[in-house]
């Protein structure tokens, strides 16, 4: 990890507050993400981690605050725009296209990149065919990378959970994102599956230089692979820094282990 070349701030979250009616999901959250780093967001259940991700992804609109991506500042993000700017994501609860094959699921991640005319596509001629082959090759590389060659044509609904999580990651990778938002990619997995997933995340970060924003509950995993960690509790930021700094933070310890009164 020491060889890693962490760059400038690519994503900057400033003073985000989000509430649903009277429930305050996030209160005045600020943190930044640097290029090529693995930035984790941790916190107990209900701390607002997924809400934070959904604000970055444009699913929720925060009432206060702003988000900057590559110097452009937005008061709220728009889902479609986020995708075109190069931010991909996976989901805590699997959100795959269940009726479609693994191949089609990952292929759908390249939707934004397919430019040829719909008529040419339907007839499979000329530039459309070349483009289809090119995208198919890219998808095949992802399938190889995630080691799911055997399930190419299987409808994803029939795959075991751990593999579905990989397809979810594959679909996000197909977008060739600059920033990848991973919402609990290892939730509900056994040790081996977790190790595989860790390896994939590290490889993506390492080989493609993709910046990763990771939400994860498994403290061991988070402390092992993260460059920096943000800690949320009840919608407030209680810690921010390297894994070692965060682990030494008394607020973090009390949030996780409780305090003595």
């Amino acid at each position: 990890m020491s060889t890693k070349n962490i760059g400038d701030v690519i994503l900057d979250v400033k003073n985000i507050s989000l509430s649903f009616g009277g429930v305050k999901a996030l209160t005045d959250i600020s943190f930044n993400v640097r290029e090529h780093e693995i930035r984790s967001i941790i916190g107990p259940n209900g701390a607002g981690k997924s809400s934070m991700l959904n604000c970055i992804n444009g699913v929720y609109r925060p009432q206060v605050g702003a988000i900057s991506f590559r110097g452009q500042t937005f008061s709220h993000m728009d889902s479609h725009q986020v995708a075109t700017m190069g931010i991909g994501r996976t989901f805590q609860n699997l959100a795959l296209f269940k009726g479609m094959s693994v191949l089609d699921n990952i292929m759908s991640g390249r939707n934004l990149k397919i430019k040829s005319n719909i008529l040419l596509q339907a007839l499979r001629i000329g530039p459309a065919e070349r483009e289809e082959i090119m995208h198919r090759e890219a998808v095949e590389r992802i399938i190889d990378f995630l080691e799911i060659q055997a399930y190419r044509k299987t409808p994803v609904g029939q795959l075991p959970y751990g593999l579905q999580k990989r397809v979810d990651l594959g679909r996000a990778l197909a977008m060739e994102p600059q920033v990848l938002l991973l919402d609990e990619p290892m939730a509900g997995m056994n040790v081996e599956e977790k190790q595989d997933m860790c390896r994939f995340v590290l490889d993506v970060n390492d080989e493609f230089g993709t910046t990763v924003v990771l939400i994860e509950h498994d403290m061991g995993v988070v402390m092992d692979i993260s460059d920096r960690v943000v800690v949320l509790d009840y919608g407030k930021k209680i810690g921010d820094g390297t894994p070692a700094e965060v682990l030494a933070n008394p607020d973090v310890i009390s949030a996780y282990l409780g305090t003595s009164h």
């Binding site: 889902s79 986020v82 959100a95 795959l96 269940k98 009726g99 759908s108 939707n111 934004l112």
Partner: peptide, 16 residues
């Protein structure tokens, strides 16, 4: 077909 299966996931990969 993607939209039919999951709105949110479809949005996340940039399907308008």
């Amino acid at each position: 077909r993607a939209v039919a299966d999951d709105h949110q996931a479809a949005q996340s990969i940039g399907i308008p």
